[in-house]
Design a protein around this nucleic acid. Structure first.
Lengths: 344, 344
DNA sequence: GAATTTTAAGCAATCGATTGCAAGTTCTGA
DNA sequence: TCAGAACTTGCAATCGATTGCTTAAAATTC
């Protein structure tokens, strides 16, 4: 039982004294088979528990209705939602997804891409890892006739389709909101600057300050504070300054913002009166903390859908070079208790 | 450029006046090729930007180092963590994952399984959808020489490898904890009873009551309260009873528990003094609410790792029928503020 | 230097499905 | 009744890599 082979079209053909080509045609609904034999073939296929071997079919047809997705972490809220969005669209089109996670490692990202190239996927959707170094591996994707679409964390230099989140605008808007609430010494928790998204968020922060005639205070910028713990540590450091900030923009993540809130509460600092806090991503918990945390919703599922749609749109209108290569999803500032000290 | 074909071993062979078989052997590190030609082939392969076509290789070798994973929802914390755990192990072994989501739909679950069978994956790891009806599609997995491992939400009738979470014990422990804290009228928010996990959680609830000589009060059991909203609605209903409960065990999810907390706070009920609350899953936010919510950690990533390990273990010790077909991961009750009214 | 072993490389079949072309059969209409 | 159209079906090549077998060449032994 265990060792029996799967039935192939040849088995069906032999049983019916037909040729495999007719079986193939019947199963694919071709018109070149008489109704009688078609029915017979379909019946026998069911009897023998036949299933098409997609591998053989793919090889012969030279196509593979499979798309590879490479993300830093599958189980991060943002990425798992993007994947859900992608899947929603690709499923409709009859495509499968191969999911890989780079674990924020550049070497592993290269390996993932290599495997996907070998798998002959039709496209790769990718968000680069935190310790991204160089885009050779991404270039080679195109060289192998595979469409590459980058999203969120992208390499700007590479001319591919991209789906971005308006990080700079969102960041600008967040800081401006703090300013209108009367905060003046606004600190920034920034992410690794080799990632475009964190560069853009910083840019938005800087231009909001500039617009309001405030000068940049380097001591108010803390590098690499991603996590709750690092966010807390950064806050300790900031609050120990001779002139501590009156607001902290955790541009890295809501987790960092939570760390900020932890420290503020431990020190008995009133939020938002004495310290304003803004996070990034609209994680579920931001609504639940007391006070709730002002943050930025990135519409992660929408991003995923757009990535997939960009691919299929490209497929359908091959001619239209009009198609924009870059789609930007506008994030939304969600104002909550942690920054509302003057009312709206 | 766009239309050029990918280079194959034949292209390499032609360029070097060799036979494709030698190229194949060289690339696979076989000993039957001289060092000189091997080097030459490797060099030329690099020059021509050669990549193996895994599809062809898989077809010929009749194996596919790919595993299919079917989950109800990719972007649910529990499942995305399980997937991360699976990926951690399978990546080590050089296997790829094809991820499908059933979206809690039985029909779609069948489709996912069908596709994976056609893809000739070596194994399918699956957690059944909420409106599961019948296991025909799962039986057919085995008929096609594909190993099936079920996890978390499993069909008990089917004799496959399984990785389970000790739902009944955890539930029992949770209710017993409530009892030791002096709660006596304990309500249960229960999930769809066609899923084993919810049946087991209910069972644990019932046996804890029984052990302590308390009789079951049917009015304290509310069906299908999964979400925050449904949890809130259920709570409204329960609190409107002539004899309302003094504790609510949201066996469905932490989201439901959050809904309970919402209503309690809206009504000015003191938690844990007047109402005890327990959730399920240890979502990140349960630690953050005020009071924090007592809940059950399922070690989702561990579950994923165990699923994958079960598969590879099966591969390595084929003979050992000793191997247990069922692995159970013991969940852990995490006691927090929402139930601690008497101290520990 | 002849005989034998070792090594290297080529040949051809194979995995399972698809598809252009050819051959055979049935049907249509004059 | 027969030419020609319209269907059915079969044949054989193909996708790209792998592998058992054979042959040719080189290395070893006596």
């Amino acid at each position: 039982m265990e060792n029996q082979k799967r039935t192939t079209i040849y088995d069906i053909a032999k049983k019916l004294n037909l040729n495999a080509s007719s079986v193939s045609r019947a199963l694919n609904g071709s018109s070149n088979v008489s109704e009688k034999t078609k029915e017979l073939i379909l019946k026998t296929a069911k009897e023998l528990n036949y299933r098409q071997n997609s591998i053989a079919s793919n090889l012969r047809k030279g196509e593979n209705r499979t798309i590879g997705v490479v993300v830093p972490r599958i189980n991060q809220n943002f990425f798992s939602n993007v994947i859900a969005g992608i899947e929603e669209v690709t499923y409709q089109k009859g495509y499968n997804l191969i999911i890989c996670q780079s674990n924020e490692s550049y070497q592993r990202e290269i390996k993932c891409v290599d495997t996907l190239i070998n798998q002959h996927v039709s496209a790769i959707f990718l968000s680069i890892s935190a310790d991204f170094e160089d885009n050779e591996h991404l270039k080679s994707v195109g060289e192998h006739q595979i469409k590459l679409i980058q999203f969120d964390r992208v390499d700007d230099e590479l001319d591919t389709f991209k789906v971005l989140c308006g990080n700079e605008e969102a960041s600008f808007e967040a800081v401006e909101h703090l300013l209108t609430q009367g905060y003046r010494r606004i600190a920034l928790l920034e992410g690794p600057q080799n990632l475009n998204i964190f560069r853009q968020r910083k840019k938005g922060y800087l231009s909001a300050l500039a617009k309001h005639g405030l000068s940049l205070l380097p001591e108010l910028i803390v590098e690499n504070a991603w996590t709750r713990e690092l966010g807390a540590a950064a806050t300790e450091k900031l609050l120990a300054l001779p002139q501590p900030p009156d607001a902290i923009f955790a541009s890295t993540s809501d987790f960092a913002a939570l760390g900020v809130l932890d420290v503020a509460q431990a020190r008995g600092l009133k939020v938002p009166q004495e310290l304003g806090i803004i996070g990034f991503s609209n994680e579920a918990f931001t609504e639940i903390t007391q006070p709730s945390i002002t943050t930025i919703d990135q519409f992660s599922k929408e991003i995923g859908k757009n990535v997939a749609n960009l691919y299929f749109q490209k497929l359908s209108k091959t001619a239209s070079s009009e198609t924009n290569k870059i789609v930007s999803i506008r994030p939304k500032l969600i104002i909550r208790g942690s920054t509302l000290r003057n009312g709206i």
